[in-house]
Amino acid sequence: MLDTSKIGTKSPPVSVPVEIGQLKFFAKATGETNLVYTDETAAREAGYRSLPAPPTFAFSLSNARPDPFKRYTDLGLDLGKILHGQQQFDYVQPICAGDVITIEETLSDAYEKKGGALQFYIFDAVATNQHGDIVLRMKNTVVQKHG
């Protein structure tokens, strides 16, 4: 049976500096060709303070903790049997290299389908920058297969 007692649990907040080298590495890994994501001059000409973090990068920031899967294994999830079900971003303002982003994540819901064969865990996260401004919100659905 699904343990719903953990709904509402908050993960310890994680504060991560957004590093220009990692943004360039992410751009390389994703075959990015838009210079705004790799060239600081192009980024500044486009009106950014420095290289912008691309739209999905905040998810990577949320994994920048010593043991990123602990929040899943603490719930009894098996890393070999979990799948990313859904991911949502709602944007407020850009994240750029040089920012320090703090992410606070809550297990906001958990439920099962198909008689328990599939369990769904919904994590809601808020990301704020070093000025205390909310930069975006994320919703992450993790699915655990049983059997």
């Binding site: 890994a29 991911q87 971003f89």
Partner: peptide, 27 residues
């Protein structure tokens, strides 16, 4: 998230990412 990053590039080749209000996917 690799495919989600690829799909984000469809958006950022269309518009500056500051114009994206929300973006979500179902895998």
């Amino acid at each position: 998230m690799l495919s989600m990053a690829y799909l984000a590039q469809l958006l950022t080749q269309l518009t500056d990412q500051r114009n994206i209000r929300s973006y979500g996917v179902r895998f």
